[in-house]
Design a protein around this nucleic acid. Structure first.
Lengths: 335, 335
DNA sequence: CACAGTCTTGGGAACGTTTCCGACAATACT
DNA sequence: AGTATTGTCGGAAACGTTCCCAAGACTGTG
């Protein structure tokens, strides 16, 4: 273990005070060009690297943002993470990644509180997940929180956090209408999403399709496999002309089950997804999906978070538009 | 902004000294049960959370590990990240995620050095990427380094870091032989991987297939799109019975181009990938691929890293076995 | 009852920075 | 020339912990 050089050493070797070194380090003015150059050279010579913990101590800033993700494995989140990380890095914040396996039964809020307690990030970003039980616990976390693509229950008091979402209920309502308008009547659903389910139910009710006629498979997790298994169950128990999945990866899983059954997509069964991940363009047929503006949401999320962190900006709840990507996995009802 | 309570407050309110509070916090013995209970209660009452920066200062430990990933967007890496993060968390280390966009021209080593300078992690994990130019710079980073699935040039001095990989050269050699043994002669390759290319070349040379007969598309990045575009170029310029891709996502991209051309997989063209990502099982036909033991590698990587961090364990270079997953995208040569 | 030994506790010096405040020199102005 | 102003710099007190060292209380033994 070699001894690390510290700011005192640099000061000593440069023949200046620690204050001056500190000023150089932080780019403050009030340092002559000559002194600055001298100190910078010394820093270089001794390969000095400031100690971050000590640095954060006086201002008690950690330069860290916690990102709690409901499954890094989901390409939709992975994509947003890559953007968020880049954006945070630009402001020299580090991203502390905290994966929350959606299969595990631990509550995402617990995960977040744990992260906060241990690492003291200055802000918290949630990607996906369900925000319901025990969310109150997060109020004692006094740092800004932004929920991205997270399902927020209607009864939640929204005054103490920000969010960036699409209007899940409305989008589901619209897509359900779209499906019905193409003649589909025997519709199945895979996925467990409170708001999207609500929008769906409303649309069907308006059209006089009773909820009883709809089969909903609450694919427990958002994974390819869950979609596959759920679709398999559906195909064994009934006959449908359209399967709506609340997530693209579920849809892709479902498509496999349909193929295995020897059925044609969309000839026999249409499949429709939600999210708009890249892989959807590479399956056959291309996935028809409700695309969320992932890049924009990711960028906005750090912008909103920084706003709250730095200027104490008020909480806001942004609703982003979606686009229907017509991929080929959806067509009019068969008969 | 509310004032944060600190260890002094807790000491004061409990009527003890900070030393005692500290001892309770760190689970040292030499504290009477009564005092311990009292302090714990006070901590609870005031919702006190120790300041991490201050905590790390005396021992200068940051409880952080940097993970530099050559593209979080690649499901192969995303999967390993999720495991690594879980594993690190178990030891109450945080994972600082640093995405290195493979499309960008910045060198991965620069990214890593920057991460080290800014955040001072206690260990560094590389996922994927090419380890060649300027890798020497990392020697001045005095913390343990483990490379996972990273291409390490033969000329690299290996004594100062650990690695966990498959034997890329040998696996490529084997898979090339496998392809040839099924009668394929007009083979194309997509991907840019030094070692895998070398193994491939060797195998073909042994079989008397000159490298000139092989068309290699150096898909610049590892992305679906790169695979798609590369395959498109291939199909326009020649006729092949098999396309070997150095990464599954390239293969999946290539499959789309083949379908668009109206060709059958594997009837007209076989496709073979490398990695063994989950989505490979959900495309049609299922992707034949050389599966790397992602889970095992991820687990081993943090185990090796911790070994080096804690016991100053010697550097090691683990080579893991692969499995050939026969998915259906590969068949014997057509004619 | 004196003494040694064990438990428990408090005091205070570190850890490596930042930053406020004041000192000093050099310059500009009256 | 004297004074105000500006530009540079150093001193030293924080920041919130940990941990070593010593002091005090208590127990058991002779």
């Amino acid at each position: 273990m070699q001894e690390n050089v510290n700011i005192y050493d640099i000061a000593k070797y440069s023949g200046v005070s620690t204050s001056t070194v500190s000023r150089v380090l932080n780019g403050h003015r009030d340092v002559s060009l000559k002194t600055r150059a001298l100190v910078l050279q010394t820093i270089k010579d001794y390969a000095y690297i400031p100690n971050n913990s000590a640095r954060n101590l006086p201002c008690s800033s950690t330069k860290a943002v916690g990102v709690v993700v409901a499954g890094v494995t989901n390409p939709f989140f992975a994509y947003m993470i890559s953007i968020i990380q880049t954006e945070l890095k630009k402001n020299s914040y580090m991203t502390i990644l905290q994966n929350h396996d959606p299969k595990s039964d631990a509550d995402i809020v617990d995960t977040a509180v744990g992260l906060y307690k241990e690492k003291r990030p200055e802000g918290l970003l949630f990607l996906g997940g369900d925000f319901e039980r025990k969310h109150q616990m997060l109020r004692l976390v006094k740092i800004p929180i932004v929920l991205v693509t997270t399902t927020i229950r209607a009864e939640c008091e929204r005054s103490w956090f920000s969010s960036i979402t699409v209007d899940d209920e409305r989008e589901a309502f619209n897509i359900a209408n779209y499906i019905c308008s193409k003649g589909h009547k025997r519709i199945a659903v895979i996925g467990n999403h409170l708001l999207r389910k609500k929008g769906l139910d409303d649309a069907l009710r308006e059209r006089g399709i009773s909820a009883a006629e709809i089969r909903i498979e609450y694919g427990v997790a958002f994974s390819y496999e869950a979609g596959y298994l759920a679709a398999k169950r559906l195909l064994e128990s009934g006959s449908y002309t359209c399967i709506l999945c609340f997530t693209d990866i579920l849809a892709i899983g479902a498509m496999k089950a349909i193929r295995e059954k020897g059925l044609d997509i969309p000839g026999d069964i249409s499949v429709i997804g939600f999210d708009g991940i890249e892989i959807g363009e590479y399956v056959s047929p291309m996935l028809t999906t409700v695309k969320q503006p992932a890049e924009g949401m990711a960028r906005q999320s750090v912008s909103v978070l920084f706003g709250a962190m730095q200027y104490d900006a008020p909480h806001m709840h942004m609703v982003m538009p979606t686009t229907l990507i017509e991929g080929g996995s959806f067509g009019p009802a068969a008969e």
